[in-house]
Design a protein around this nucleic acid. Structure first.
Lengths: 121, 121
DNA sequence: TCTCGATATGTTTATTCTTACATATCGGAG
DNA sequence: CTCCGATATGTAAGAATAAACATATCGAGA
């Protein structure tokens, strides 16, 4: 289904405990929720089923002391979701880690790339 | 099938081109070949089928200008595999990137962990 | 009280990923 | 010229993942 995603570069997956990790997918969902105000919209935006998006959110909420995402149903805006303070913090820290990693390995990265075959055929 | 693997910490996946990446799995295979002298042994050591291990090797060999692994069949030692100079270089660079990443994000890592729930139940 | 869009879940169907099994080849050593 | 262990591949069976479909709930506002 989703095709040309996963940008080139370093992809970071933070394994905090065995089977408890946060990677590019969960980070993007957090960001999507922050920007759209809903799990459904965040999922749609990244071509992911609502169920899958919701499941990831549910997992994250279970793993941290405080939920990362808080949701509401019905009401004036017909429900929605937003990041808690912890959610904002986790997202910010993950992005920072991505940045730090990118800088730290930039030089090695270039050297690795120079070993690649052309593949433009 | 394989269970308690994937050490906690940062897991790095280097995406050099869309659909061309090297991550912990391929790095471990390279290292296994370096240390055991065979694809089959490297695979067994990490609980991976020979076919899977061979397939990963084949993919890597196709993607780089020079093969990373060279193989032989029959002969005195009944065949085997070893890393080429390029293979050694790729492995070394990947390990270095892992190290650099670990150092770069250590501080953030600790802070993230402190937000985790206990889960020892 | 009926509507609407979003959350919340369960069930079923597809798809994709791995493994398992089955051969074929190689080539020095015995 | 047969044996052995490893490479090299194909195919079929199974397992794990993900998508698709189907409801149920919520609650302010019309």
């Amino acid at each position: 289904m989703k095709a040309g995603n996963k940008q080139v570069g370093a992809r970071l997956r933070i394994v905090l405990e065995p089977d408890i990790a946060i990677g590019p997918g969960k980070a993007d969902i957090l960001q999507g929720i922050k920007e759209t105000g809903s799990i459904a919209a965040a999922g749609r935006r990244m071509g992911m089923s609502y169920k899958r998006a919701w499941l990831l959110v549910e997992t994250m909420n279970r793993c941290f002391k405080t939920p990362l995402v808080e949701t509401s149903r019905g009401g004036r805006r017909q429900g929605g979701a937003s990041l808690t303070a912890t959610g904002e913090e986790v997202l910010a820290r993950y992005r920072r880690m991505e940045l730090l990693t990118g800088k730290a390995i930039a030089k090695e990265m270039r050297k690795l790339k120079s070993l690649l075959r052309d593949m433009t055929k």
